[in-house]
Design a protein around this nucleic acid. Sequence first.
DNA 1: CTCGTCTCATCGTCAGACAATCTCCCGAGG
DNA 2: CCTCGGGAGATTGTCTGACGATGAGACGAG
Lengths: 226, 226
Amino acid sequence: MSSGQFQLGPSSLTDALYESVRSRIISGDIAPGEKLTEQRIADDYRVARPTAKACLERLTALGLLRRSAHKTAVVPELDEQDITDLFFTREMFECTAADRLAEARTVPDAARKAQAAIESAVRAKAFDDQVVADIEFHWALINAVDSPRLSRVYEMVSGEVHLTMGQFKAHRRTTPSTVAAEHALILKAIEDGDRAGAREQMAHHLQGARDRVLAQVMAAREEAPA
Amino acid sequence: MSSGQFQLGPSSLTDALYESVRSRIISGDIAPGEKLTEQRIADDYRVARPTAKACLERLTALGLLRRSAHKTAVVPELDEQDITDLFFTREMFECTAADRLAEARTVPDAARKAQAAIESAVRAKAFDDQVVADIEFHWALINAVDSPRLSRVYEMVSGEVHLTMGQFKAHRRTTPSTVAAEHALILKAIEDGDRAGAREQMAHHLQGARDRVLAQVMAAREEAPA
DNA sequence: CTCGTCTCATCGTCAGACAATCTCCCGAGG
DNA sequence: CCTCGGGAGATTGTCTGACGATGAGACGAG
């Protein structure tokens, strides 16, 4: 859903490798702080080191890995500053998208579907599915704007957002059920052509999400500081 | 100025290669429509093909080249749709930046310096210098927000913006002198803490720029259609 | 206990190779 | 004359194997 969108990789093997490693990072299978050497990827997937290298570079560009020259790539642990910055950027994208969609009164079908998926996941208490559907919801709005560049740059934050939710999941105590309700308000504003309202609802929704994540991160840090 | 900012390349050689090819594309030395094979880069710069490949992939990610699997990379020729989309994305970034800076009443020194450089370039009728200073001005505002992710995603449009101005230069008839005046209005709004005003001035400025570019592109196309 | 040196792991880059795929020209057929 | 396949060349995707450069941690000297 995210990669095939705009900048598709050079080939299927490279793409498959990328997708696999990406999902392993996002799902937390490879934990934050863990080191990923080129050799390890090469061995794990039976590919040559240059292929693994390209994969790591791609992930680094999306913020799912951090590294500098001659140093091993590591999965980043997002701190408060990262999360604040990430949500600031995200808010810029998504509020703009909401505005645009409200202007055109376009409610994408994909968003409605994702919304339904969220609701059923909440009923089933399937937290993972809820996260996936939530991300799909936001992607649906972005893609509905039909701006290749917007979709492309959103990909650069989407991965980190997913990472954040993975960390969030690891430490969660409460499952917010307000998400679906806020989404509904956003869709309604778009449907009504209420541009300012759509912007505002979206901003409010994201700020709430940010604050929940921040609270969890701080709580987790107090719990196991040293 | 653009690359060393956030996601720096793995090494100096790779970086130097990237910068060189980038500037050649942006300056129009490598014209839109021209094909760039990996071998050509490798030969031109005496590097191995994998190194050249990595460079092309990086440029592709920034929109300065287009290619799909097994096909040679080409410098894109931006059409009306591209330009409209590009300026839409750019407006999102820069209006957000202007808003933020106005909120903090922060006028970055770098922006003032770039502004002075524009004015002197206009006086000297040095069009190239004016373009460079203009891009520096906008980068200064973005960077002053002090959001790593904003700077990072701006890099993805900055290259294309520069490309656009290169194409614009090739066909230009008039040199707009309104740029400096509009910049001054933006800085004033920021200084006054007028968030809405800063947003609006910025949006107006960019829409004007977009329309000038669009007009040039359409004129050029009528001039040499087949 | 601190600091400098030294070894090892890892990365950056290269050369050369092979298969898969694409492009383009050129001839066969309508 | 134009259209449609087919084949040769060009280009890319990936591999193997290698070498020097750089960073990180251990180890010993002071």
